[in-house]
Every structure is written in structure tokens, then in C-alpha cells.
Simulated scan of single mutants.
Amino acid sequence: MNKSPQAYWSATLRLISIVLVVWFIVSYLAGIILAPALNSIHLGGYPLGFWFAHQGSMYVFVALIFYYAYAMDKIDREFDVHEE
């Protein structure tokens, strides 16, 4: 694999793009745009659209933080720029 700084930056930007797209889908689409359609499904007694808008997007955001840290560590190790 190409170990150039451009390849490292490309891998980093790809990861950031994926995380931001997932965050956008969960917080904006599921929480706002698709909320009326999702409200027909209930989660813990609350409509799913309401749940995504008020709690689900925060849970997904925290999960994305852990995923980003794990994936970025993997990229850093692949390009040998990690810290011990």
C-alpha cells in the first residue's frame, strides 16, 4: 500500500466523511425530515422520530466518537504515525 502523506490524508478524509454522513443521516434526516414517517414505530413507548430527535442522535454521536477513535488509531498504525 502507498504510505505517502497524501494517502494518509485521503484515508483520514474518507473516515471523516463517513462519520459526518452517518451523523447527518441520524440527526437531520431521522430526527427532523423523516420523523413523521418514523413516528408510526414506537421505541420504549415513544415514537421513533421523537426518540431520534431527542435521544437517539446523541447515542449515535457518542458511538461515532468511539468508532472514529478506533478507526483513526487503525489508520495511524497502518501508516506508522501512531503514538504508544
Rank of each mutant, 00 (worst) to 15 (best):
N2V: 04
P5Y: 02
Q6H: 09
A7H: 07
Y8V: 00
A11M: 01
T12Y: 09
T12R: 09
S17P: 06
I18G: 09
I18R: 11
L20D: 13
L20V: 12
V21H: 12
V22G: 00
W23M: 11
F24T: 14
F24Y: 15
I25V: 14
Y28M: 14
L29G: 09
A30Y: 13
A30N: 08
A30F: 15
G31I: 07
I32Y: 14
I33P: 12
L34W: 12
L34C: 08
A35Q: 12
A37Y: 01
A37Q: 10
L38S: 04
S40P: 07
S40Y: 09
H42P: 00
L43V: 09
L43N: 01
G44F: 02
G45N: 02
G45Q: 03
L48E: 06
G49P: 00
F50Y: 15
W51C: 02
W51S: 00
F52Y: 10
F52W: 07
F52K: 00
F52A: 07
A53G: 13
H54Y: 14
Q55W: 07
S57R: 15
Y59D: 02
V60W: 02
V60E: 02
F61L: 05
V62E: 01
V62A: 07
L64E: 07
I65M: 07
I65G: 04
F66V: 09
Y67H: 07
Y68R: 04
A69K: 09
Y70R: 10
Y70F: 11
A71C: 08
A71N: 08
A71L: 06
M72L: 12
K74I: 05
R77I: 01
E78L: 09
F79A: 03
V81R: 05
